Simulated assay, not measured.
Amino acid sequence: MEPVPVVLSKFEIGRRRCGHAPGVARVALGSRPATRADASSREDAPLGAGTPRALGDRGISRARLFRQVCGILVSVTAGNDLGGVLRRWRERATPPHGGVVSCTRRRTPGMRRDELAAEAGVSAEYIKRLEQGRGRPSAGVLDALARAMRLSRPEYEYLCSLAGHVPPRIGRVPHEVGPGTRRLLERLGDIPICVLDAAWTLLAWNAAFEALCSASVLAVGRERNMAWCVFTGDPENMRGASGFPFQSAIVTDLRATALRYPDDDWLKDLVTDMQTASDDFAALWQSHADSRYRHHQVTVHHPDVGDVTVDCEIMTIHEGDLRAVIYTTEPGSVDSARLAIAQGQYTNQN
């Protein structure tokens, strides 16, 4: 006798969580989400005998069933799970204005809702609704939240699974700063150093860098991206950075980054917008110039001590695909004295 087709309602599937009925594939929140390639390869594969079918014995593809089940599970459980995870990760994240060395006491741990909202380009009220389980963020918002909280790739994938989204198949530009890099920043506390990701977005810095470049530390969103600031920002803030060698080095590095991470939508948008906003960037990008020169001299304008000319060294940290930008001055020079004054003022204020 042929097996009788099993027909489950959406409520029944949601109640059983897809893990207690024969013939229904188990879907566990937190497991590796299916990729777009997985879904496309199974799109037209009908389920076999003994598995659920639609009314009228019409076949239903595995991909369609997977989407339906994920939608049900999200509506049943993801509200609280997503909100709770988002809040825990926000409270452990590094505050955007704290850098590596924080001398001020905070009333709440990690990032505040308004800080996360500013970094991700949404409202604080929207973050509150998500944490209360009253909303389902889009894939773009999830990507922005992951960047703002510096999530790892597995954490990003888990966040996507809670929201019912399939993460991109190829990874994004990594933006995690490892403990070794943080120790380097702390031990070289009197030398201004900042750490950027491969897209040239500011991730971490030490107190000396904050004393010299407070505007960069306080910036949010795309204004934290050094490449964007060099090509579209006020040239008076960092004179010399607009010179051809430095610009060409940035473009060369960004082009290599775009090749390594072809599915990073944030990087794609950055490159597209810079080509529109800056003729210099567009010309360098189209010329395919290749500059490996890593030593530059720039003049940073400090609001209190005036212009400080520094030697700028760019180093690659292969673990995490990071960039370390190191500023030094000639010992005994006027610039060295001004840098010392700026650092002294910063120490007194904090």
Rank of each mutant, 00 (worst) to 15 (best):
P5Q: 12
L8Q: 08
S9W: 08
S9C: 09
I13R: 11
G14F: 01
R15D: 11
R16T: 14
R17F: 05
C18V: 02
G19H: 05
A21L: 15
G23I: 03
A25S: 13
R26N: 06
V27Y: 11
T35L: 10
A39T: 06
S41R: 15
S41A: 15
E43K: 13
A45T: 14
A49D: 13
G50Y: 09
R53I: 14
L55Q: 09
G59E: 15
I60K: 10
R64N: 06
Q68I: 12
V69T: 05
L73F: 05
V74Q: 09
V76P: 00
G79I: 10
D81S: 12
L82Q: 04
G84F: 06
V85T: 14
L86C: 09
R92G: 09
T94H: 11
V100A: 09
T104S: 12
R105N: 07
R105G: 07
G110K: 06
R112D: 04
R113L: 11
E115C: 11
L116Y: 09
A117K: 06
A118T: 02
A120M: 01
G121Q: 03
I127Q: 07
L130C: 08
Q132A: 13
P137C: 08
A139W: 01
V141W: 01
S152K: 03
R153A: 14
E155M: 06
C160H: 15
C160Y: 05
A163T: 07
A163M: 07
A163R: 09
V166S: 12
P167K: 02
P168T: 11
R172S: 03
R172Q: 05
V173K: 00
G180R: 14
T181G: 02
L188N: 14
D190H: 05
I193L: 13
D197K: 05
A204N: 11
N206L: 05
A207R: 09
A208M: 04
L212M: 12
L212D: 00
A219P: 04
R224S: 01
N225C: 06
M226H: 08
W228Y: 09
V230G: 00
G233R: 01
R239H: 10
G240F: 02
F244I: 09
P245I: 05
Q247A: 05
A249F: 15
D253P: 01
A256S: 06
A256Q: 06
A256V: 02
A258E: 02
R260G: 08
Y261T: 04
P262T: 07
L267N: 01
D269S: 12
L270R: 04
L270I: 03
V271N: 04
V271K: 03
D273S: 15
D273W: 02
M274W: 04
D279F: 05
F281M: 06
F281V: 07
A282K: 13
W285I: 03
H288V: 00
H288R: 12
D290A: 10
Y293K: 10
T309F: 01
V310H: 00
E313C: 00
E313N: 11
V325N: 09
T328M: 01
E330L: 08
E330Q: 13
S336Q: 10
R338Y: 00
L339M: 04
L339E: 00
A340G: 02
Q343S: 04
Q345Y: 12
Q349D: 14
Q349H: 12
